[in-house]
Design a protein around this nucleic acid. Structure first.
Lengths: 295, 295
DNA sequence: AAGCCCGATACCGCGTTGGTATCGTTGCTG
DNA sequence: CAGCAACGATACCAACGCGGTATCGGGCTT
């Protein structure tokens, strides 16, 4: 029973779908199937019941899910305590699903040049937590999206991305330059579960077409949303997408407010290193805006 | 940060010696060195300060040691809860260092033939806990040695092993057929730390030659004791040793009471499976005694 | 009945793990 | 002080495990 397998299992349970879980873990589905089976044989217990529509946890699977969550979190805290005890200087950057993951690595590179002694770690958070762990100290600085409940959190806007939908190339709407929410009223849609940040939730659930509840199944994460696009031919809402698999197109939505990418940190924990990272981030976008002006 | 590395690190810290830790982990020293270094680079912290005489934890190492201990124990409990929730039938056999480990596998083989649906796990306990985890439920049935405080624990004696010392072949005492404790009065000796089962502790510390405190460094575990033999040319006390590396001999001690190998279980948890294992164990020794009579 | 989506399986290349052999360094000892 | 012995580190190697691609079998859907 290794942490790797626990991480995998948690992802599968949360996504209720091997393929989506694999996407979330940045891997493919077959090794994930094998890993879960390995965990099952190791424990001598069936953890998931598989069906053609997806997977669900057995009672033992539910038990392991709870245990694994606490174990993984405790491990993360343990790591933080140990590195602190060792006087190691670490900056943990939280990203939202993979929104900002690409920019995160880019900013981290320049940060590393400026502070070679600091080791950098990434933590990719669920789409249900826009703070990516700022509030409970799992993350020092976050690259996330507004708006969310920012009491006690300082944010600086880096850029503002238009929100659009991802469509298969053969979709009847794929040729359009722009779309509005009403065009998509009959499609499966994604909706955040209860208990998430209310500001955040109303913003994204406000994306539900024509004020109605989603017509299709409720989709919970951006990963899932992306995968819904990839495999169901249905739509997903997403900010500007950088790399898009073949056969997919991205079409902006005219009636969704743009989604700002921000750098955020817990105000009371604002250390020089965090300030430095924030400045690097802002400078990068200031300069890029500047350069784009010069061009 | 995987459980494997945490287990390794804990062993090294407890043994304060890479070689002994490797022996305890049933592996060799170089991969262990590498694994610890891997953990250090992963955390970005120096965990141990190395010297020619051994190793010791840094502050960060101490922090990680505490964290790792709790994480590993929680993982063990989590496993137990999950398998219980899944209705899996598991028998966990505790062994004492590797006393009875070899007999344990032998008995487990026949047990598995009789109960194919039961999955068997081993847990090798520190020499400081003669119950190998019976009291806190980590183990269902133990192969251990008497005497220890057996309130609430049922035991059945399997066989009684003479206690002797392991010597290098070139030791001046290696040729002797028997030895007594006085012959070894000036050697490093092993002694159990405070806090261990008092009955158990007085038994083994009673092995201290001529009633004196040990002349040499205090050695804490059987592994360490065995390794002291292997690498220091000093003596270790040990029950009958089955496989002995080349160049070593085992000489019985005349003035140590024999050490009984017993099968033990928590009386209140005595399930049919545990009884079955105990019977298999007793039968095996009854038959082997019987066969040896016939020969 | 056909098509599709999902998880399972087969197979493969590569990285990691654990092994053996050996080295450099450091205390100890005669 | 020189020799030695013990410790951890390093070099190198074989084998296994992990993640990848390609494909299959089996339920739902239409």
């Amino acid at each position: 029973m290794e942490f790797r397998l626990l991480r995998y299992f948690v992802a599968v349970v949360e996504e209720r779908h091997f393929g989506r879980a694999a996407a979330r873990l940045h891997m493919t589905q077959p090794p994930l199937s094998r890993a879960v089976k390995q965990l099952e044989t190791d424990l001598g217990v069936v953890l998931l019941h598989r069906s053609a529509t997806g997977v669900g946890p057995t009672p033992a699977g539910n038990a392991l899910y709870a245990e694994a969550r606490t174990l993984l979190e405790q491990a993360e805290r343990a790591r933080a305590r140990v590195t602190a005890a060792g006087g190691a200087v670490t900056l943990t950057i939280g990203t939202l699903a993979d929104s900002g993951g690409e920019t995160g690595t880019r900013l981290a590179a320049t940060f590393r040049r400026r502070h070679p002694e600091v080791s950098i770690r990434f933590r990719e958070a669920d789409f249900t937590d826009p703070t990516t762990g700022l509030r409970n100290g799992l993350v020092d600085v976050a690259l996330t999206r507004s708006p969310f409940d920012d009491t006690g959190i300082s944010t600086r806007e880096l850029r503002s991305d238009p929100v659009g939908v991802v469509l298969r190339g053969d979709d009847r709407l794929a040729g359009r330059d722009t779309l509005c929410l009403a065009d998509l009223a009959d499609r499966p849609w994604f909706q955040l579960p209860e208990g998430t940040d209310p500001v955040w939730r109303t913003y994204w659930n406000g994306a539900t077409p024509v004020g109605e509840r989603p017509a299709g199944p409720v989709v919970r994460t951006v990963h899932e949303c992306m995968q819904a696009v990839l495999w169901n031919g249905t739509v997903g809402i997403a900010p500007l997408v950088h790399v898009l698999p073949d056969g997919l197109t991205w079409v902006p939505l005219t009636d969704m407010p743009p989604s700002p990418l921000v750098v955020a940190w817990a105000t009371e924990h604002g250390s020089p290193l965090i300030r430095s990272f924030a400045h690097i981030a802002i400078d990068a976008y200031y300069r890029s805006a500047h350069e784009s002006l010069e061009r």
